[in-house]
């Protein structure tokens, strides 16, 4: 016993180790890669389709090229959910917690690894969509360039939304734990609720994640109203990003609190 215990190396397991475990877990599932490939391909395809069908160059061409971002975010949010819930459905959670019993540490490592992956993939989807959507323009319409006002910001923040929306999914997965229910919850919160609220109240709708992505982040100029019109201005791009980040933090905080308290 003493001899066996004496072999324990110095130090202790920490964020770096748990993050490595989470990265191996994420990259060793084929479904991760399929989902990410479809996410990027889908975003690009929609951007190209909108580009081909654009006949009037006076609109926000950057926003047009990024039209595939919101549909693609469905997959990222669901992948975020599954990253958490597949631990429970497979039984893997027992192995995971045996290796890393600290649940706040585990969720932090999961969030960092998944958030960073979704961010990188999101930026790829956003930039490629932007250039592909621009290249698909015809009818003598010039493609937008990154140097034009607000364009680089719109492309960067659209990509960033993947990281944040993915984390909202991860947090919801930690709260709900059952894959089907958690997927329904994330699609309901992100897509169905806005569709209902958007029809009733624009002043509330502008704080909803999908409206923020569509009207504040992916636009060179946040959608606003004609002077004197009876509608509400969208949030500015940076305010919108801050609000989505708050949702992600809140989802992870509540999910983490439940994760730490509940029996696994």
């Amino acid at each position: 016993m003493t001899a066996l215990a004496a072999r324990l190396p110095a130090g202790r397991y920490g964020f770096r180790h748990v993050a490595r475990m989470e990265w191996i877990k994420l990259r060793s599932l084929r479904s991760t890669w399929w989902t990410l490939v479809i996410t990027v391909a889908g975003a690009i395809a929609i951007g190209v389709a909108v580009g081909i069908n654009t006949r009037n160059g006076s609109g926000d061409l950057t926003n047009n090229a990024l039209a595939g971002i919101i549909p693609a975010l469905v997959l990222t949010s669901v992948l975020g959910v599954l990253t958490m819930t597949n631990e429970y459905s497979s039984g893997m959670i027992r192995s995971t917690l045996a290796a890393a019993p600290s649940r706040p540490l585990l969720l932090a490592a999961k969030a960092a690894v998944f958030g960073a992956t979704a961010l990188v993939v999101g930026e790829a989807a956003s930039f490629i969509s932007f250039f592909a959507g621009g290249a698909a323009l015809s009818h003598g319409i010039a493609a937008p360039t990154l140097g034009e006002p607000g364009v680089l910001r719109a492309v960067l923040l659209s990509g960033a939304s993947f990281g944040l929306v993915g984390l909202i999914g991860l947090g919801l997965g930690a709260m709900v734990r059952h894959s089907a229910a958690a997927c329904a919850a994330v699609v309901g919160v992100l897509y169905v609720a806005p569709a209902m609220i958007g029809g009733v109240s624009h002043s509330v709708a502008r704080y909803l994640p999908i409206f923020i992505v569509g009207n504040s982040l992916s636009t060179t100029k946040p959608q606003s109203c004609a002077p004197g019109a009876a509608c509400v201005h969208s949030l500015s791009a940076w305010a919108g990003l801050g609000v989505i980040a708050l949702y992600a933090v809140a989802a992870l905080a509540i999910g983490g609190w439940l994760f730490a308290r509940r029996d696994a």
Binding site: V18, R20, M21, K25, S28
Partner: peptide
């Protein structure tokens, strides 16, 4: 390999 990484 994932489990091994968590405990170095």
């Amino acid at each position: 390999a994932a489990l091994a990484a968590s405990n170095d």
